[in-house]
Measured scan of single mutants.
Amino acid sequence: IEKFKLLAEKVEEIVAKNARAEIDYSDAPDEFRDPLMDTLMTDPVRLPSGTVMDRSIILRHLLNSPTDPFNRQMLTESMLEPVPELKEQIQAWMREKQSSDH
């Protein structure tokens, strides 16, 4: 029984630690959010139409349809242009958020 109590305490400790580690990014500025999924972008790319999306989301879309989801023009992965300035701004915002939450 004592071992179970210790195990339960350890589990509670881990759960509390994980809860502290989770950071809420739901208040991200609109320009940091993917327009299709409304999630925080981690690897922004510009489509030929000028729309900026997260790379993982547009690549997932391209698996089903080789088109720009906003104007239905033909689109391939090679046409995606990285946006390193925005990526750095997002990373800086995330770092600031992490340091203010801890």
Rank of each mutant, 00 (worst) to 15 (best):
I1S: 14
I1T: 08
F4D: 06
F4S: 10
K5N: 08
K5V: 14
L6S: 14
L6V: 10
L6P: 10
L7I: 09
A8V: 08
E9N: 02
E9K: 09
E9M: 09
K10G: 12
K10N: 12
V11I: 05
E12L: 11
E12Q: 14
E12Y: 12
E13T: 03
I14N: 12
I14F: 15
I14S: 09
V15D: 07
V15L: 11
A16S: 11
N18Y: 09
A19P: 09
A19R: 14
D24Q: 14
Y25Q: 06
S26R: 08
A28V: 13
D30E: 12
P35T: 01
L36R: 00
L36E: 04
M37V: 07
T39S: 06
T39M: 02
L40H: 11
L40P: 04
L40G: 01
T42P: 04
T42M: 00
P44T: 00
R46S: 10
L47V: 15
P48A: 02
S49T: 09
T51N: 11
M53I: 15
D54N: 04
D54G: 02
S56P: 07
S56A: 08
S56T: 05
I57N: 05
I58V: 03
L62R: 01
L62P: 00
L63H: 11
N64D: 04
S65G: 03
T67V: 00
T67N: 05
D68E: 01
R72G: 00
R72D: 02
R72F: 06
R72Y: 01
Q73D: 04
Q73M: 12
M74Q: 07
L75V: 02
T76A: 05
T76D: 06
E77R: 08
E77S: 04
L80F: 08
L80Q: 00
E81Y: 12
P82A: 11
E85K: 13
L86V: 04
I90S: 01
Q91Y: 09
Q91P: 00
A92N: 05
A92S: 15
W93R: 01
M94I: 13
R95E: 08
E96K: 13
Q98S: 11
S99P: 15
S100I: 14
H102A: 07
H102P: 10
